[in-house]
Amino acid sequence: MKVIEIKNLTKIYNGSSVQVTAVDNVDLVIEEGEFTAIVGPSGSGKTTLLNMIGGLDSPTSGEIVVGNTNLATLNSKQLVDFRLHNIGFVFQAYNLIPVLTAGENISFIMEMQGKPKKMITKRTIEILKEVGLADREKSRPNQLSGGQQQRVAVARALASKPKFIIADEPTANLDTKSTENLLDIMEELNRRENITFIFSTHDQRVVNKARRIIVLEDGKIVKDEQKNV
């Protein structure tokens, strides 16, 4: 089943003197349960593409359909709401709320969704278990390692039961052990719960784990490889 369908997607940035085409006429379909890495050199358009898929940036032309929703048809308020209920985000710098505990960082997003309190408590504990941090529910981000923080960030992204999770360079700030640990968790979630992950990365370890690798160069897809696992 298609989760994301991108048609003729183009993003042009108008600088003071030059126009930069960050994404150039991209067509792409992401199916449910994919574990996809978008790779490419710096400036190839990976982050711009992910931002547009995540509804954080708008395309110059073309369209993005998530599920049955064409993002172009949504106003900014609807877009925020759409992101809240349909897309999970994992950022390079973890971006947890420092004054909230690991558990609160996870439950916060479900509270914004208006889920019942009982259900929030139950799911928070479940997700923390899934990312191997059941015993760190009450820990603040500054009491956690980088790897643990990123696992909380993955848990937060999962909490809203999104259609897919976008992870922009999720391992860039992690050491080898933490990276492997994080990737194992995400791969496990993907396999067991059929959660769709889309990464942008430079990290060969992520690429090795991915089952589909999309290579971008100058905003164009130059390679789209499906691994047989």
């Binding site: 954080l56 925020v80 997003i109 914004m112 969704q113 937060r156």
Partner: peptide
């Protein structure tokens, strides 16, 4: 700023 950007990205609306 960064944190507010993150909150808006993950779905915190203007009202909130």
């Amino acid at each position: 700023t960064k944190e507010l950007g993150m909150l808006m990205a993950i779905g915190m609306n203007k009202k909130r």
